[in-house]
Each structure stands twice: as C-alpha cells, then as structure tokens.
Simulated assay, not measured.
Amino acid sequence: MLAIARAFEKIPWQPRFSLLDRYILREMLRPFVFGFGTFTAIAAVIGTVFYLIRNMVEHNLGILSALQVFLLRLPTFAVLGIPMAMLFGSFLAYSQLSRRSELIACKSCGIGPVRLVRPAVVAGFAALVFTFALNELVAPPMAYRAIQTLEVAIQHPQPTFQTRHIFYRRFAGGQLQQLFFAHHFDGKVMGQVTVLNFEQGQLREIITAQEAQWQGTAWLFRRGTYHHLTGDRDYDAAETFAERTFAYPRTPIDLAMETRAPEFMTSREIYQYLQILAESGDAKRLRQWRVQLQEKLSLPFLCLSFAVVGAVLGISSPRQGQGRAFGLSVVIIFGYYVSAFIFTAFGEGGAVPPIVASWLPKVVVSAIALGMLYHANRH
C-alpha cells in the first residue's frame, strides 16, 4: 500500500481511476453488499413479512402468493437500504484501512483526506444514480403490482378508482368557479350528480342529474334538472331534461380514477396528478402530495452524503476508538430520520414549504459531511 501511495502522491486528481481508487473501492464493496443485504432485509421484514403472515392466518394467503408479494416489494425496501449501506460500507472500509496503517502511509506521502475520500464520492454518486433509477423505474410499478397480487390472492380485490363521494372544486383568479359532486362512480358513469356554477362569487347555475358520463370532449347528463339563478338568488329559468351536454372539464374523472398512494407512482406521475389537484383547490391534499414528490426526488442524494460521512468517520477515528465513530454514525442516522419525520409533518401541515420539508434534512447531512471533511483535512 505504501508503494501505491507514493506512486500517486503527485497526481492526486487525475481524471481516470487510479490504482489507489480501485483499491479503496474494492475495500468498500464487500461491506456495502453486506450492509445492503442486511438493511434491506430488516426493512422488508418490518414492512412486509409481518403483514403477510397476518394475511396468511386471517385470509388463508398461500405461501407462493406471499413469496411473490414479498419479492415484488423488495425494490421498495432496497431504495431505503442503499443509503444506509453506503454509510456502513464506506465507514467499515476506511476503518479497516486505518487499522492496517495504510491511511497513515498515504498521509505520510502527502495524500490528504480530500484525495482519500474521492473513491467514496464516486461510489456515493453511483449509488445515487442507481437509487434514483430504482425508485423511478422499478420500485413503483412492482409495489403496485404486489398490492394487486395480494388483493387477488385473498379474494378481496379493490377497485382502481374512487367509488363514492367524488368531490371537485375549480377555482379561477382566486374565486370559486364550480363545485362538482357525485354520490357514486362505477368506473364509467357517475350517479346522483350535483353541479354548482359560480360567477364572481355568486351562484348562477344548479344542475342535478341521475347520471353523468364523460363523452370525450364534454359531459353528458341524463335525467336531470337545470336551474339558472339571477343576482338576487331567484330562479330565472328552470327546466328538466332527458339528456343534456355540458362543456365542463374532465377533472372529476381524473380525481376519481387515481387512488394509488405516492409510493406506487413515479415522480412524473405524481407531478401530473399534482396538476389535477391544483385545479381542485384541495390545499391540504396538494401539500401532502408535493411533500411526497420532493421526498422521492431528494432521497437518492442521501447516498452521496452518507458515503462521505462514513469515509471521514473511518479516516478520523483512532485505531482503538472505532466504537466512538460507529456510535457517531448511528447518531447521525437517527438524527436524520427524526428530523426528516418532523419536517415531513411540518411540510404536510403547511408550517414550511414542501421543498424545505424534504430537502433540508438532506442538506444538513451534506453540511455535516463537508464540515467533517474540512476538519479532517486541517488535522
């Protein structure tokens, strides 16, 4: 290792991977794989296994179906396990190098902590990209398929749309324009529909119908009544109709058809659904979905921060004081999840903006990582 360090002391930032980089990356690989398997398994057991066992007992869920659901849910828990594995892998690898005096040899040749941490940064960035791809392309559709598989296996399938009490509000220029309510929905036709239309804050139209169906460009109301109101709330016109077309937006259908939770959707799908929610004026639900979108986008960046934190902990921890470094890493992990939970609650409650609620805990971890690296580089 000493010869390797001397060979690269004068070219600390060459663009290609050096032998030193590859050596440290190989040291990180084994603990990362072990940590990835361990943390993913723990998350899967807590998040799925107990739930599946309960369904096996209560609903006679078969072992093969339970195994299929478990495997389909694994990518979701892998997304959570990768950042933890990066912290564990980089910390243990650099601790091993420190214990074998290989880092001391590097420092004696003028290779500082910033240069030594570079392989951890590369590994963290690779984990970031992989986590983002897994969380976007693999985990959401497989998790949704797992739920559908479970519902079919226990013979309790749930509709993929909202079946009762579809409520939609539309605003324009800060003023309420329309209220749309349907008592029930079978996936194609809405029943017992009531629509209130407003102009400049004043109620102008009341439409009720036994059925309403989207026809591609407008709504077809059947067996209903139409009332037009004047400014003093008196009926200016009232009529019954067998069928009548109204050029209202399709949004109530879009709201009713989307019943998936954010974890079963990609960030693109969440963003598209947010456009629908923005028109409905449901501020509380809009905040919740915005927070979930930012959480999905920000989580992969934790891989890079945790990789640097683990590397600096391994470099700076004394050869006989690894317990202190490990304890500090646990404190950082615990502090992150506690702060993330608190800020998520604040974001969904409207106390802080959604982007702050989701990104601030990650920014704090990144700041800690950079501060630790700066401190290690000065000593």
Rank of each mutant, 00 (worst) to 15 (best):
S18C: 07
L29E: 04
P31K: 13
G35C: 12
T38W: 03
I53W: 06
R54K: 11
V57W: 02
E58S: 01
H59D: 09
N60A: 03
Q68T: 13
F70N: 01
F70Q: 04
L71A: 14
L72C: 03
L72E: 06
T76L: 14
L87E: 07
L87W: 06
S90R: 06
S95A: 12
L97Q: 03
L97K: 05
L97C: 10
V117R: 04
A126S: 10
E136C: 03
A139F: 08
P141D: 05
Y144Q: 08
Q148I: 05
E151W: 02
V152H: 08
V152R: 12
A153E: 02
F161C: 08
I166E: 06
Y168N: 06
G174Y: 07
H183F: 14
H183K: 15
G187P: 04
G187E: 08
K188E: 10
G191E: 12
Q192E: 14
Q202W: 04
R204Q: 14
Q215V: 02
T217P: 00
F221L: 14
R233K: 04
A238L: 05
A242Y: 06
A242T: 11
T251D: 14
A256F: 07
E258M: 15
M265L: 15
T266V: 07
R287P: 01
L293D: 04
E295V: 11
S298W: 13
F301K: 03
A311H: 07
L313A: 09
S317M: 05
A325E: 02
V331A: 12
A340L: 13
I342T: 06
F343M: 15
V352K: 09
P354T: 09
I355Y: 14
A357T: 02
W359E: 04
S366A: 15
A376K: 03
A376N: 12
